[in-house]
Design a protein around this nucleic acid. Structure first.
Length: 244
DNA sequence: AGAAAGCCTCGGCCGC
DNA sequence: TGCGGCCGAGGCTTTC
């Protein structure tokens, strides 16, 4: 902390949410880093001025002084190339933060609106979880879609959402308001356990969840056929036997 | 060749 | 008729 940004840059893709690529370079120059935090999938850099943020999409990785902050992304490449560097910050002490992203879905942001994000998935409490699943009117969305809604709970992606429902034995298509008390209890337990194991593994998708998660796959727990469909806009897999 | 990720936008359907 | 809630499709991009 305390280092000052001497230079920043972003290409047109990384800066897609900004008014222009130059806006990032212009805004970050001369700012002093005062703190870092994370909310859901968003990395937040607090500074002496405007708050900076980065999101990593599917294949984005933060490089700190040339070292990858995480490795082994399930869908990512297993190599690093200089042409995949999309944005970066250089500090007056010689250190740097670099955004490496082959598929160009990662983004830099200025003054992010944290109110758009719900409870953080890593630290959500039982009572917050209950609120997150509360539906005021009607049946609500399919539970899978609810888990992926970043404005309700921030941090759950497609693979994690499938994993939690798989562990809890809940059909991802179930309307949220139809979940029983028992369902909700099992889901909260599966949720926290899944997040804990994710954290232990270093926070990346290593592909060690849900072995049957592919077309024609079978459930490793009971041999049931795995089904798949688009739910909440994402490809979803579930066991036809134990996820009811 | 098609499918996948996160996120965004769009148009359509449903029920009140 | 309008509105909110919800849905899938389509787009972005590249790799496998």
């Amino acid at each position: 902390m305390g280092a000052t940004i001497v230079r920043g840059w972003a290409d047109a893709y990384a800066a897609k949410k900004l008014s222009s690529p130059a806006a990032w370079a212009r805004a970050v120059k001369g700012l002093t880093l005062t703190g870092t935090s994370r909310r859901g999938k968003l990395l937040v850099l607090e500074t002496s001025g405007v708050t900076l943020a980065m999101r990593f999409g599917m294949t984005g990785v933060l490089l700190i002084d040339d070292d990858a902050a995480i490795d082994g992304l399930f869908y990512g490449p297993h190599t690093y190339k200089s042409e995949w560097i999309r944005a970066g910050l250089e500090f007056d002490d010689g250190r740097k933060l670099v955004l490496h992203d082959p598929r160009r879905l990662a983004r830099c942001e200025l003054d992010p609106d944290l109110d758009e994000l719900g409870y953080d998935a890593l630290s959500i409490t039982r009572s917050e979880f209950a609120k997150a699943l509360h539906i005021a009117r009607g049946e609500g969305p399919a539970i899978k879609a609810r888990l992926l809604d970043q404005s309700v709970i921030a941090g759950v992606g497609n693979l994690l959402g499938d994993e939690m429902l798989y562990r809890a034995g809940i059909d991802p298509r179930t309307p949220t308001a139809q979940l029983t008390i028992d369902d909700r209890n099992r889901l909260f337990k599966a949720f926290t356990q899944t997040m804990r194991s994710l954290q232990r593994r270093g926070g990346s998708h290593l592909g060690d969840h849900m072995e049957g998660r592919f077309p024609g796959g079978h459930c490793p727990l009971d041999g049931g056929e795995m089904r798949s469909a688009t739910i909440g806009g994402r490809t979803t897999y579930w066991c036809s036997v134990h996820q009811k």
